[in-house]
């Protein structure tokens, strides 16, 4: 079973992502912010990390660049959740090493479709 780590400070989004992806047959762990995410990522061996951008303690952009410095996550797909339709956040994410993005708001179908793009 593919393992996914979902990082978001919003409980409702986190629960939704977790629930949806579990339904789709993935193993999903959740983290509440960048610091938590990094810690959990280091502990578990994830096939995909989905992270929000705006979070307390450590934001998504820093999380992504820190993850890319980890050997285990050098090539792992990392998707960012972003509401920003403007491209500067996307670009910042890209240059930090993000694989792609999921634009909020998203529905469960879209989420699964996007995840399937990178987990096959």
């Amino acid at each position: 079973m593919k393992r996914i780590l979902a990082v978001d400070d919003s409980v409702s989004i986190r629960e939704m992502v977790q629930f949806t992806l579990k339904q789709a047959g993935y193993h999903v762990d959740a983290a509440v912010d960048g610091v938590d995410g990094l810690e959990k990522a280091k502990m578990g061996n994830f096939d995909l990390i989905i992270s929000d951008i705006n979070m307390p303690r450590m934001d998504g952009i820093s999380l992504i660049s820190q993850l890319r410095n980890e050997r285990a996550y050098k090539f792992t797909p990392i998707l960012m959740l972003t509401t920003e339709s403007g491209s500067d956040k996307k670009m910042a994410g890209k240059s930090a090493g993000a694989t792609g993005w999921i634009v909020k708001p998203f529905n469960p179908e879209k989420l699964i479709a996007t995840v399937q793009k990178v987990l096959r």
Binding site: M55, P105, N107
Partner: peptide
Amino acid sequence: NTIFRVAHSIKGGAGTF
């Protein structure tokens, strides 16, 4: 930033739900 994050979360969640 904290204030922004709250507004942002509400916006994001509201759209999603």
